[in-house]
Amino acid sequence: MIISHDVTGTGPAVVLLHSTVCDRRMWDPQLPALAAAGHRVVRCDLRGFGRTPVPDGPYNNAEDVLDLLDHLGVGQAALIASSGGGRVALEIAARRPERLTALALLCTALAGHQPSSGLSAFGDREDALLEAGDVAGATDLNVAAWLGPEADDATREKVREMQRNAFDVQLAAVEEFAQIRYDTDLSAVTARTLLVSGSHDFADFRQIAAHLSDRLPDARHLELPWAGHLPNLERPDAVNPILLGFLRETLTAG
C-alpha cells in the first residue's frame, strides 16, 4: 500500500514527516514557503493518521516512506520531521543513508529513550482518559501538553482536529498490529542534521536533541526559547527561515 500523500512544487525533494499528535496538515504553514524556494515538497500521512488507514498487518513506517519515495521516483531527499516523525526519519537516515541529502528534526523522539516522570505522567493520564471513553478529554490534554504559549486559538483548534481524527481512526480499528522495529545505528547516519528543540517542551526532547548533536557526525542543536513541542505551527514566521536557511546551506555545501 502507498500511504496517502501530496506533492507540491518542483526541484530538489523535501519530505515532511508529521508528529503523532498531528497529520500531514501540520505542515500547511511550511508548504508554500518550501515550494516557493524551489523544492518539490512531499507530505504524507503515516498509517492511522490523516487519510491513511490503520495497518492491516505488521508494518514499518520507514519502509512505508521509502516505498512512497520509490513510487514517486525520488532517489534522494531532505527529510524534515517532527516528534514521532523524527524517529521514522532517523531510522531512514541510519538504514538508507544514501537516500538523504539533509535531516531537520523538530523536537524529535528517539527509539529507546526512557521517558521522564513528567512525560510518563502525561502518558498515564492520556491512557486513563481513553480507557474511560473520554476521547475529547484526551484530545484536550494533548493540545494543552504539546503547544507552547505562542500558539494562537486557530493553531490550537487545528491540532485538536488532527489529534481527534487520529484517536477516532485508531480507536475504531478492529485489530491492532505491531510495527516492525529495527535497531537504529546512529553511527550510520551521514546527513547533515539540524536539531530543533523548544524551551516550553518536555525536557525529554531537549535532552534527545542534545544527545543526538553529540552522536551524529554533522549535527547542530538549536533551542528556541519561545517554543513548545510544535514550533512550526506555533510560529511559522520564525521556523520557516530556519528551515529554508538550513536547506540552502546544505545544498550549497553539497
Rank of each mutant, 00 (worst) to 15 (best):
I2Q: 04
I3N: 03
S4A: 15
H5R: 00
D6I: 00
A13R: 00
L17H: 08
L17P: 12
H18K: 03
S19C: 09
C22E: 04
R24L: 14
R24P: 13
R24V: 09
R25Y: 09
M26P: 04
M26I: 02
L31F: 08
A33K: 06
A33T: 11
A35P: 14
A35L: 07
A36Y: 06
A36S: 13
A37W: 08
R40P: 13
R43D: 08
R43G: 14
G50A: 12
T52Y: 11
P58I: 04
N61V: 10
E63P: 14
L66T: 14
L66P: 12
L69V: 10
D70A: 15
H71D: 11
L72Q: 03
G73N: 11
V74R: 03
G75L: 10
A78P: 07
I80L: 14
A81I: 06
G84D: 06
G86D: 08
G86I: 07
R87W: 11
V88C: 06
A89G: 12
E91K: 05
I92V: 12
A94D: 06
R95Q: 14
R96F: 14
P97Q: 02
R99E: 02
L100H: 04
A102C: 04
A109P: 06
G112W: 09
Q114A: 14
S120K: 11
A128K: 10
L130G: 08
L130M: 10
T139A: 09
D140I: 01
L141F: 12
N142W: 04
V143W: 01
D153V: 11
D153W: 03
A154Q: 05
T155E: 00
R156H: 06
E157N: 09
V159R: 00
R160N: 02
R160L: 06
R160F: 07
R160D: 02
E161V: 02
E161Y: 03
Q163D: 07
N165K: 13
F167M: 02
D168K: 06
D168W: 03
V169P: 04
L171T: 03
L171Y: 05
E176V: 15
F177D: 00
F177W: 11
I180S: 09
R181K: 13
D185M: 06
S187A: 15
L194M: 04
L194W: 01
L195T: 00
L195R: 00
S197I: 04
G198D: 00
A203R: 05
A203E: 10
A203V: 08
R206M: 08
R206F: 05
Q207K: 09
L216W: 03
P217W: 00
P217L: 02
D218G: 11
H221K: 00
L224K: 02
A227V: 04
G228A: 07
H229S: 07
L230N: 03
N232S: 14
L233V: 03
R235P: 10
F246K: 00
R248H: 15
T250N: 07
